[in-house]
């Protein structure tokens, strides 16, 4: 992390402008690079993330859903750190993520800034 450890690039996939901007502000405050994508399509339009990057992805994205993005990231040879975020009910989250295997974290909104800082 910026102060505590190495600076990383954080990719934020979140369509809510308030949430994505505050996440970006917060991550930059921690000394990280932070890039915001309004949807999965624009994320896929860029070069694939490095293994050292962190992806914060909202599960309920318009168009291609967050679960699809996670599935794709988990299939990479060197998957980056992935944090799924969602404000939906647990049952909805479970349904969305059924069949998505791999090593990633899930945080429910409202997010704890401390927790997400530690995870990145």
């Amino acid at each position: 992390m910026g102060i505590l450890g190495a600076s990383v690039t954080v990719h934020i996939l979140e369509d809510d402008p308030g949430v994505s901007d505050s996440l970006q502000t917060y991550m930059k405050g921690l000394g990280h690079e932070a890039v915001v994508y309004r949807d999965a399509e624009s994320f896929f339009g860029r070069e694939p993330p490095a293994a050292s990057d962190t992806i914060i992805v909202d599960l309920f994205l318009p168009g291609i859903g967050g679960a699809k993005v996670i599935g794709w990231l988990m299939g990479l040879k060197n998957p980056p750190r992935v944090i799924a975020i969602s404000g939906q009910a647990q049952s909805v989250i479970d349904r969305q993520l059924s069949g998505v295997a791999g090593n990633f974290d899930i945080l429910r909104k409202p997010l704890s800034p401390h927790t997400i800082a530690q995870m990145v």
Binding site: D16, G18, D21, L23, T25, K109, P110, L111, S112, P113
Partner: peptide, 13 residues
């Protein structure tokens, strides 16, 4: 949850 998340992150920043 959306604005609450944003508020917490902004204030923490």
């Amino acid at each position: 949850n959306q604005p609450l998340t944003a508020i917490m992150l902004y204030l923490q920043a």
